[in-house]
Design a protein around this nucleic acid. Structure first.
Length: 295
DNA sequence: AACTTCACCAACCGCCTCGTT
DNA sequence: CAACGAGGCGGTTGGTGAAGT
């Protein structure tokens, strides 16, 4: 961590040298236009040179970042789809914080975006579970509860069968969970009218070996970029993890279980935040009990 | 309505790698 | 082979708008 970062003033110029000052901070529309037009004519690369030739008072690095993370035409905007979230979870479990490598499998998404997603959403879940997000325990938890939950949501949108129940076997250290708790459909969500109206029947969208893709293994078909981006309905229906989970997790929650959880681990924190989380109390109980068994 | 808290994300930084001289 | 510069990467910060009080 930097000891003392100088406050970045908006568009504050910094000394550049002989021919002017370098700008920093948010990009203006004019700068964006300059950069876009220049790259359209001359292509990317040689960023320092590019910055000068384009008449931008920015560092080459800044130009590159702006282009790659924002201006590039194929940048995909909007919240990550469940498929993309799943893919991130799985790839992160394989590669760790190799954001650019992960981003290569999510066309249109930048490493910066994925990194932000991880830090704001995923690490939040880890915090609430009192687990290091980089630990094996959290990976187990993600695999056992989070991924299936997302997959269930995907299934719900792609199948009209309301009785469909996920039964993804998953491994937590050395114990196996035969099936996952059923997630009730979103309760009375005004924005969620599509999940029950999708009237197609199809087989399970995830293969049995989904949880074990290796470096040599092709990505699951449903998680390939073409599929990820072909399903606009899904994207419109489920914007992000939080919105998926924000529903009636609290319906199964009791203060008795809360105090019990408290008694297991004094540091456990229960807050309103929890109610908006992916992990309902059943999940937490299941995970924690399994974790104890593993110890 | 005013204020506070929180989540998101654009943009920065330092470090590392790689290619060129 | 060393020095140097450009580009790439991951970590971090701060601004902003939304949500909550």
């Amino acid at each position: 961590m930097r000891a003392a970062m100088a406050p970045i003033m908006k568009n504050m110029p910094i000394p550049m040298g002989e021919d002017g000052e370098l700008r920093r901070g948010p990009w203006t529309l004019e700068e964006d236009t300059l950069l876009t037009h220049y790259i359209a004519r001359h292509g990317e690369g040689r960023w320092n040179m590019l910055a000068k030739c384009a008449g931008l008072k920015r560092t080459g690095k800044s130009c590159r970042l702006r282009w790659l993370n924002y201006l590039k035409p194929d940048i995909k905007r909007g919240n990550l789809t469940p498929q993309e979230q799943l893919l991130i979870l799985e790839l992160h479990s394989k590669w760790g914080n190799r954001w650019s490598k992960i981003a290569q499998h999510l066309p249109g998404r930048t490493d910066n975006e994925i990194k932000n997603y991880w830090r704001t959403r995923v690490q939040k879940q880890a915090r609430l579970l009192n687990i290091e997000s980089s630990s094996k325990r959290f990976l187990d938890a993600a695999r056992c509860f989070w991924m299936p939950r997302l997959l269930q949501k995907l299934e719900q949108t792609s199948s009209s069968s309301s009785s469909t129940q996920s039964s993804v076997p998953c491994q937590l250290s050395d114990c196996t969970i035969p099936s996952l708790p059923t997630i009730p459909p979103p309760a009375n969500k005004t924005t969620d009218t599509t999940s029950s109206s999708v009237a197609t029947t199809q087989q399970s969208i995830y293969p049995p070996d989904f949880m074990n893709i290796s470096d040599q293994t092709e990505l699951p078909q449903h998680l390939t970029s073409s599929n990820v981006y072909s399903n606009q309905t899904l994207e419109q229906t489920y914007y992000n993890i939080d919105s998926i989970s924000t529903g009636n997790e609290m319906e199964g929650f009791s203060f008795a279980s809360m105090s019990a959880v408290d008694s297991i681990e004094g540091s456990w924190i229960m807050s309103n935040e929890m109610t908006e989380n992916l992990w309902n109390m059943d999940d937490i109980w299941q995970f924690r009990e399994l974790g104890n068994m593993g110890n």
